[in-house]
Nucleic acid binder design. Sequence first.
DNA 1: AGCACGCCGACT
DNA 2: GTCGGCGTGCTC
Length: 803
Amino acid sequence: MNIASVIVDVPTMQTDRPFDYLIPEKWSQMIQPGMRVIVPFGSRNVQGYVVKVKDHSSFPQLKAIREPMDVVPVLNQELMDLADWLTKTTLCFKVSAYQAMLPAAMKAKYEKRFAAVNEEKIADEKVAELFKKKKEITWEEGEKAGLLTSIQKEVKAGTVELIYKVKSKGNKKTVRMIGTRLSAEELSEAASRLKGNAVKQKRLIDVFKQHPGEMISAKELLENANSTSSSLQALIQKGILYEEQKEVYRDPYAQTDFEKTSPFPLTDEQRKAISPIIEALEEEKHETFLLYGVTGSGKTEIYLQSIQKVLEKGKEAIVLVPEISLTPQMVHRFKSRFGDDVAVLHSGLSIGEKYDEWRKILKKEAKVVVGARSAIFAPFENIGIIIIDEEHETSYKQEETPRYHARDVAIKRAQHFNCPVILGSATPSLESFARAQKGVYHLLTLKNRMNHRDLPEVEIVDMREELRAGNRSIFSRSLFEKLKDRVEKGEQTVLLLNRRGHSSFVMCRDCGYVVQCPHCDISLTYHHFSNEMKCHYCGYETIAPSVCPECGSPYIRYFGTGTQKVEEELGKLLPEARVIRMDVDTTRKKGAHETLLRQFSEGKADILLGTQMIAKGLDFPNITLVGVLSADTMLHLPDFRSSEKTFQLLTQVSGRAGRHELQGEVVVQTYTPEHYSIQLAGQQNFERFYQREMIMRKLGSYPPFYYLALVNVSHEDPLVAASVTEKITKFIRSRLSNKTVVLGPTASPIPRINNRYRYQCLIKYKHEPMLSDTLKSILEQYNGQGSYSHLQIAVDINPFVMM
DNA sequence: AGCACGCCGACT
DNA sequence: GTCGGCGTGCTC
């Protein structure tokens, strides 16, 4: 057993298979599947994942593993199998699947360095001088000195060596701990031998006399003893004290106090909903529950009590929350109930913090993980339940490879562990609700709010009427009246500006010219802060024009109401109102979210103004008014889910009002008040919406009636892109059943990105066993190199974004 | 992905 | 003649 099969960190079609390596004698006992190793690959060193240890290879000339990167496997067998499944279902590379399962800190970084091996013989003077100061320089340093070609000549001559280094991003954080091996008496004696003026050293010894046998961090010690590090160093030198590096976790929640909570008594309705879950837990059987409960109906308490049960059985729980940093309240509730058993994984943490939380899970120091999408891969080995809150959220679908949906992964893992999955939502996705209707999922319903308050009253305002009545403001008369009233009464308001699909573009009011990206077929987005125009797709930047480049008119300005503009407007109309603005600009800094929300909850503002990010999870007692400024902006996007998204957003945001003692009110402003998703969101009638939307989906042959797969082809030459897509589409048609709908080739909604022309083929199918093989052979044929080397093909099975 | 190898056009 | 462009194929 001295050969390891390794998947190397080279994400291409032709390297997406194991390569065999010899395991050097000294590591023969320790190398196991699931460990990362550094291996030579071609002329460089790369990171690799051991998938198998064996004693035979058909390859005659094996190279040896350079170095192990782990002492224990970072991926267990279950996760390795899960990676295989991910590879098959999403058509991604093995490495990509492994990398998706591990914290970003474990992704390798590569560095090229030059080292002088024979300094005297270096021919080029400039190069020799460079290596006089340092024996080793990085590639970048060589480049900066402008000597790359000369250095490369020296490499050929053998005087300089090119080294490929694999570096890990993850650093364990350590703390210096100080202790003593001496007894109290010995310490006193040692202290008496010190010079009389060594008071600082004596004070240090005193600390250990009071706490014999304990270790204390150097920082704390110096503070307690009011001493200095040089005194400490002296004592260590003398052998009186000793130091040790202790590994510590960075704890992002260290500053926060969590008041312990106990389970709340459940309402009848909640008790009825939780009992099938408890039953599944007891019987250790896999079942997927759809917990459909109106906003404020107490879904979280059901999660908490189910987890309680799981922990009592000595098992672990995964809770997924959409972009969790948005809901510090949620984290708070889990931490308060389960204390240090909870690990938190979300995008707001630094790479190091995420790495630490992940290691807590691996070392079994955490039993519950609360996190965003990728937390579904938490390396637990005895999962008792998986919960996905706000199940309908699109952020559970990853839009880069591996293009997985966390819901699918959850069900796959739960099947392995024979445990239940709970999908919770007030506005379930059509897919999930349809499955619940068919009995594939077990439907659990919570119809009543916990406070027995009615759902808030929703008023839909037709903005066209407002315009006709001469009101050109952003606010309808009704919303403005109510806003004024709340500010006077000291109650709080949430204002949602739905800006998706309607980004701020710059247009000339004289000739209609819109500033576009020169490399992509998309209008540039205006950034007020820097007065720049930026392309979201390729990163192109330019200064915003002050006159129209087309006709020279000075009447060129940006369109699309931004939060900033609304804030200005509020300042004019209601100068006494205190406003907190939450959007990408004001929440970019780490922790900004929490700070702004805390200020709002402490009543330091009357109005919380923001984009989608404020729609979810806020639970403040004093909110009695919710205003949606433009409900229909995303209704007109070329996306079959736009009605569903609109309905969900409006329902979710309405749910923010009147969650406690005070009754809430909602005003929805729109230009299409007759649209069913707005009407039914106004009535908070999910069932009706579901029926209505299902008809639309059936007519369009969309999910949940059909599954989708999208093939996206891009090339710098539009003719090549079109003709290849044509070929691919024909090929797909020939291979799939005639019940499957194959659409295309068509130009993508964004026909050009970064000067690459994009065409696509959309497949709608119900049952298509050949699909995966067909798509895979397309990838193999075209995505490899050869005559199609400039072609890029991306396959998305069950896409959420059709761009 | 990188990198070497090999084949063609533009220079000292 | 050679330097360097890019197209092609390989990495245990």
